[in-house]
């Protein structure tokens, strides 16, 4: 078994755990925290897929995802605080 497949399984399991936290809560803050981890997991999954499929293209995808993730994290925090600064 390719060790990268193990990494992929670990990351997907982490994303499932984070999804559980999003669904279960309790509270908006915990849902936001879980959603953050789902996104970080996605970035790592893209990296592993790039190595597994031997394609250099993912470097650009990773860069753009991290930029999107930055905005997503701030929006989530704003959502949790209900628009208050």
């Amino acid at each position: 078994m390719n060790p990268l497949d193990v990494a992929l399984v670990l990351l997907v399991a982490s994303m499932v755990a984070a999804t559980y936290r999003v669904l279960r809560g309790p509270g908006k803050a915990d849902r936001g925290a879980g959603a953050d981890v789902v996104f970080f997991g996605f970035v790592s999954v893209v990296i592993v897929l790039g190595l597994r499929l031997e394609t250099e293209l993912v470097v650009d995808i990773v860069l753009v995802s991290t930029l999107v993730g930055f905005l997503a994290a701030l929006s989530l925090a704003r959502l949790v605080s209900g628009g208050k600064r």
């Binding site: 470097v59 860069l63 930055f70 994290a73 925090a77």
Partner: peptide, 30 residues
């Protein structure tokens, strides 16, 4: 260069997002 930038943005996300989330959670009375 690309991966270095991605790393900086990722760490900034973790730090700023974490602080903002902690503050938001605290204000929301978690």
């Amino acid at each position: 260069l690309k991966i270095g930038l991605a790393l900086v943005v990722q760490l900034a996300t973790a730090a700023v997002g974490g602080t903002a989330l902690a503050r938001a959670g605290y204000l929301a009375g978690t």
